[in-house]
Each structure stands twice: as C-alpha cells, then as structure tokens.
Design a protein around this nucleic acid. Structure first.
Lengths: 97, 97
DNA sequence: CTGATATGCAACCATTGGGTTGCACAGGAG
DNA sequence: CTCCTGTGCAACCCAATGGTTGCATATCAG
C-alpha cells in the first residue's frame, strides 16, 4: 500500500496521531478506539506496508512506533503540484503584461 | 469526499498533475488516460467534492481547473504530525541529558 | 435541418476495504 | 503447571470503489 492510500483512512490518520505521542502496542491502541483489536492490527499492517510505522517485538508484545520519513513524500508531491500550478500562473501573467 | 481520500487514487493524482498544466475538459483528459470518459468524469466529481477542482461551463463544454488551496490541509496535517513527533523526541533527549 | 461531438444519467459488475467473530498459540505471572 | 493476556490467522459480511456499457440530451458546425 502506498503512503497516500495509507493516509486516506481517518482511523489510520488517528492512529498516526496517537503514535506521534509515543510507541504503543495494537492492544493498547485498540483501547483508545471504538473498534476491535483485529481491526487496529489490520490498520497497523497497512501503515507498516506503507513504511509509516516500525514494529519492534519484545516478548509477546509488538510495539509500533512512528516513522515520519515517508510523510515527506506527501508534502513533496503537494509542493510539486503547487509549484507547477504557480509557475503556470506566473507565465500567464507574463504573457498578459 | 475529504482531500486525503481524493488523493488516495493514483489516477486522480495524475489528473491533478495534468490540470496543473492548465484547465481541461473531461473528454480532453480522457484522451490522455487509458480509461473511459465516464470514469474520468467520476474522478473529477470526486475531486470537485473534495474542493480540489473548479468547474466552469461554457457552451456544451465543462472546463475543469485546479484549486490548490485544499492541498494546504494535507501539508498542514503532515507538518503537525511531524512536529509533535519531533517535539516528543527532543523531550526524550532532554530527559536523557 | 442534420450530423457530429460533449456531457449526463443509470444500470451493472468485480474487487477492495473496513469491520466482525472464532479459534489457536505463545509468553508472563501466580 | 495453570491461568491470563497479547498476537496471529482465517472466514465471513456488507458497503464502497473503480471501472464498464448503453442511451438520452444538448450544443456547435455545415
């Protein structure tokens, strides 16, 4: 799953916000959300696949922590589109003047 | 549809990139993509609903143009998450020193 | 008017997605 | 060893999604 799809789900965005406060396990997170532990696990798997999260097992617990690197791709994409749009506008302006 | 969901589809992201080069109609866009005109129209409707695009009818044509304002929400969200993550890390660092 | 083109609307289809429940298994705590 | 708790895996459900085709409608050009 790519980063954009990973961020498209509101629950996953909330999970990311939670993880921004520090690592947590699937069970811990599922207590803060109105859905089942398995649903949370699925979301975390999606985030993992997108590279947005790190898994760190110790004993029987799996602690998930945030990886912010991939988020850069998103801002980058937005910046690129915005840039070419602005560039186009300024060219238009030049032609008119 | 919210902005994040609108951006989750690769075709829609490509549409946005196309529109960044200037306004176009659904039919024009459908010529640059391997899918039907109706599929493009659906995607444009999604983008419109997300406020990412403007519709401007003249005669029988409907010209779609990009609206970059809403894209700011995305970068903002990414920046916020990144900020609280970094803040958490620096607090940790302070405690350790 | 006639013909070609741009759009809209609706039905339909297959796949994905978010969620559930149930059960098996592994690792700490008593 | 036994019990409780955290995970994993699988099956299943239903709604949403991305795509199609077919047809009706509207506008522009000859």
């Amino acid at each position: 799953m790519d980063v954009f799809s990973a961020l498209s789900d509101p629950t996953r965005r909330e999970l990311i916000r939670s993880l921004a406060d520090g690592p947590a396990t699937a069970t811990q997170l599922s207590r803060q959300f109105p859905i089942s532990r398995q649903a949370i696990t699925k979301h975390l798997a999606a985030l993992d696949e997108a590279g947005l999260v790190d898994r760190n097992a110790s004993g029987r617990e799996i602690r998930y922590s945030l990886r912010t690197e991939r988020l850069g791709e998103v801002s980058l994409w937005v910046a690129e589109v915005g840039a070419s749009w602005d560039q186009r506008l300024s060219k238009l302006r030049d032609q008119l003047s």
